[in-house]
Computed example of a mutant assay.
Amino acid sequence: MKILVCIKQVPDMESRFKVNGEGTWYEDSDLAWRMNEYDEYAVEQAVQLQSQGGGAEITVLSIGPDRVKEAMKKALAMGADKGLHIQDDSSHKRDPWEIATMIANFARNEGFDLIFTGMQSQDRGSAQVGILVAQMLGIPAVSTVVSFHYDGGTVTVKRELEGGTKAVVKVPTPALFTCQLGLNTPRYPTLPNIMKAKKKELTSIPAAQVLSEPAAVVSTRALFVPQKKGGARVLEGEVSVLVTQLVGILKEKTGLVK
């Protein structure tokens, strides 16, 4: 069985963000970087499946500049067998369609039985890439997976729906799954596995090998921090007094209260 796990390197969400000089994305020079949280669940699920036996081989894929290899090395230390890095310094400018096209063009002739992605990335949050990849490959896709069971050529999963409800879905392989928080508990790479990961295959190919231009379907025209528009006003005192104050404020600010 062959498994592909697609991961993304994203800034640590505790970082202090600044808009870059072009005004179209954030400045990335002084940020701390990590593997996208949702993708950690995808890697863990693949490794758990591999541990069940059957000779599964896990390939981890990531698109971006050279620094994304650090996130890939973590995936290799968690248990993935090899990595495919699509070298692309302009990955942050690409829309979900382009990113999905690169992944699908690589995966199309590789014969993967299962493809795992995170539900969404923490920086863009489009939640589109995984589903687009499945569409391009012509295979089933199940999103927001919170429970996973593989039995031969069939996978049974639970999907998280709005309102906290769950839906049980059964699909044949090959298939793609986007992983939601709570699917599992991602492992911490041990020191021996970190050392082993250094010897695992990590191949880089140029983006042009899996994506032919023209340019993006969608591009970012401007990115900016919203301006502050004043603060809150705290009312204190007895309820009867507060009601009078509140009505007065509503009359003053909106003119809707008579």
Rank of each mutant, 00 (worst) to 15 (best):
G152D: 07
E201G: 00
M195F: 13
G153M: 04
T156Y: 03
A216R: 13
R187W: 02
V210C: 09
K170C: 05
K158D: 13
L161E: 13
R187G: 00
L191S: 05
E162L: 11
Q180C: 08
V157S: 04
A175K: 07
Q209T: 09
A208S: 15
L191P: 10
P174V: 00
V157Q: 03
A216L: 01
N193L: 05
T190D: 06
D151P: 05
L202A: 03
Q180V: 00
P189W: 10
G164R: 12
K199F: 06
T185V: 12
T178C: 09
R187K: 14
L211S: 06
C179Y: 01
V168S: 14
F177S: 00
P189L: 04
I194S: 10
T185P: 00
L176F: 04
I194P: 02
S212M: 10
L181F: 14
T173Q: 09
G152T: 05
P214I: 06
S204N: 06
T165P: 00
N184M: 07
G182T: 07
M195I: 14
A175E: 04
E201R: 12
T190Q: 11
M195S: 07
L183H: 07
G182Y: 10
L191N: 05
L211T: 03
D151S: 13
V157D: 04
V155R: 00
P206W: 06
K198D: 07
